[in-house]
């Protein structure tokens, strides 16, 4: 049976390449139809913010890559609820299908995977 992988993305989208390169791991694994999930944790939840204007930072829009996840077999983005709440993000206005994970369940969720990569 294929080994599963969880990619934990903890950086904001415009703090450098971390968010993009975490997402690239997920997309590459999805292309091989591997059992793979993405968890946005800490500042990583800022990747879900609506109305980002990356062009003002001369950057490309990362949310387009997030939207591509279902094409690679990753249907939902897992998100730590506390990280969202602590940063004042409105759960109802996020532009992506997400599955919230409570703080108390994070450990169990992470433990379900064979491999974990955190960026």
């Amino acid at each position: 049976m294929a080994r599963s992988m969880l990619v934990i993305s903890r950086q904001a989208p415009w703090s450098g390449l971390a968010a993009r390169e975490a997402l690239d791991i997920a997309l590459a694994g999805g292309a091989f139809e591997l059992p793979l999930a993405l968890l946005l944790l800490d500042d990583g939840v800022f990747q879900l913010s609506a109305g980002q204007r990356p062009e003002s930072l001369e950057q490309k829009d990362l949310s387009a890559n997030l939207k591509a996840l279902p094409l690679f077999g990753i249907e939902t983005i897992h998100v730590a609820r506390d990280s969202l709440v602590q940063r004042g993000l409105d759960i109802d206005s996020l532009g992506h299908p997400i599955e919230l994970i409570e703080e108390s369940r994070l450990g169990d969720f992470i433990a379900r995977f064979d491999h974990v990569v955190t960026l």
Partner: peptide, 22 residues
Amino acid sequence: SGLGQLHEAAQQCDRLVCFGDQ
């Protein structure tokens, strides 16, 4: 080579051990 090489190796190993960053 590509990121596929990371995934392929992850499929073949017992443990993927990551160093650096977070």
